[in-house]
Amino acid sequence: MSEVSGERSGIGRDQGDQPSPAPKTEALGMKTENLSAFYGAFKAVTDVDMEIRPNKVTALIGPSGCGKSTFIRCLNRMHEVVPNAYAEGCVKLGDRDIYARDTDPVTVRRRIGMVFQKPNPFSKSIYENVAWGARINGYRGDMDELVERSLKRAALWDEVKDKLKKSGFDLSGGQQQRLVIARTLAVEPEVILMDEPASALDPVSTQKIEDTMAELKERYTVVIVTHNMQQAARISDYTGFFYIEHMNDPGRLWEFDETDKIFSSPNRKETEDYVTGRFG
């Protein structure tokens, strides 16, 4: 663990500072080298080399089934949770290979949090939803303060501060998703992975999540899979386009560049066809 943490201390870092205005904090970047992902004998993603810059939002776009969700799940070793699924290649958080033999996936996931497509709050109170992750990771500080700070950073505090004891299920879908983000922030990860976090939400909730993301990159490295290209264009600094050239091929990282470039003049025709909606 200590080797992974780099310049930051563990879970209780910058404890006590006020969440807003959020001071900029250096997060770690990530890097994949020749990363391939498999489901049993089926190769879903092949040979991805990507550099995920620290304190930036990196968006992954591409047609359905092109491997972007699989890829993002490889970034915190979540992919291998699925039976028979495994990954090959190298994924680095900072300088550390998270697939190294002596690395425990559980510690990897604490450093690299994840928010899923469907809001998945635990069957606990709002307070406990946020506190739980920090508690199992041995957080010893002021829990009330941590819960408040995390909820504030996820832009949910004002809406729930009077009903922290209520079940997480009592919240709307958009609030649930922000609760999940708060829960992830409470563990103080370096990187936050989001797998289509707003695809199940209404436009107003989506907008709130997007606004939250702009603030998150002040302290974290963010990677987001999205089907909404305008969303990718709005919120991300870098964009990776995943594509499958022929049926049954594994997905590839077809183009990776600054978002401005991808959405104004991408280098490859397939990327341009996809972002302009001329795909297929």
């Binding site: 949770v81 635990f122 992750g133």
Partner: peptide
């Protein structure tokens, strides 16, 4: 739900 827990370490 399980994945949510795993994702928190």
């Amino acid at each position: 739900l399980r994945e949510g827990a795993y994702a928190l370490g």
